[in-house]
């Protein structure tokens, strides 16, 4: 038995505590203690991006990120994007463009795309590719994902300009 530690952090806008072991990663904690399955462990090596979680506003690979590091942090998962009852523009754009087949990788792509658009409101193709190069999609929905990010950029820019 390894010693456990209590951590406190903000999860999808709520203050929570979790009992974790030093070796637990973020995904194990989110799935086992909070029933959040949107971030999925796939490669377990930080290669595929399907376990992407936002910590203090930065996307991290939940499979490599130790749960202990979440202590005091602000953690956001894909489940939080429609917290106001509406899909995030990025989620809506993925549906509109058909940016997936099986959907396993989609939460990771959605979170990365959102972070990209937070930093760069009107990215070109190369910027999109560069930003999403750490996310793998075995169904090969990349062309539709590129399209989705562009649609999402348009949606967000329209929203911001209030049109």
């Amino acid at each position: 038995m390894s010693a456990t530690k209590t951590i406190t952090f903000t999860l999808n806008g709520e203050q929570v505590t979790a009992e974790i072991a030093p070796h637990h990663n973020l995904i194990e904690m989110l799935q086992n203690q909070f029933d959040l399955f949107g971030a999925r462990e796939s490669c377990g090596q930080g290669i595929c991006g399907s376990c992407t979680v936002s910590v203090n506003g930065r996307a991290v690979s939940g499979c490599l990120y130790l749960a202990a590091f979440a202590d005091g942090a602000e953690v956001v998962t894909v489940e939080h994007l429609d917290a106001d009852g509406k899909l995030d523009p990025v989620q809506g754009a993925f549906i509109e463009a058909g940016g997936f087949q099986c959907g396993f990788c989609t939460p990771g792509f959605v979170l990365m795309s959102k972070q990209l658009l937070d930093e760069q409101s009107d990215p070109d193709d190369d910027q999109i590719r560069h930003y999403l190069s750490g996310n793998l999609c075995r169904c090969g929905a990349y062309p539709e994902i590129m399209e989705a990010v562009k649609i999402a950029a348009k949606k967000r820019n329209k929203r911001e300009s209030g049109i």
Partner: peptide, 13 residues
């Protein structure tokens, strides 16, 4: 692992 079995990424399309 997937590091040694390269599937297409977004730059390969």
């Amino acid at each position: 692992s997937l590091a040694d079995y390269k599937i297409p990424g977004i730059f390969d399309i």
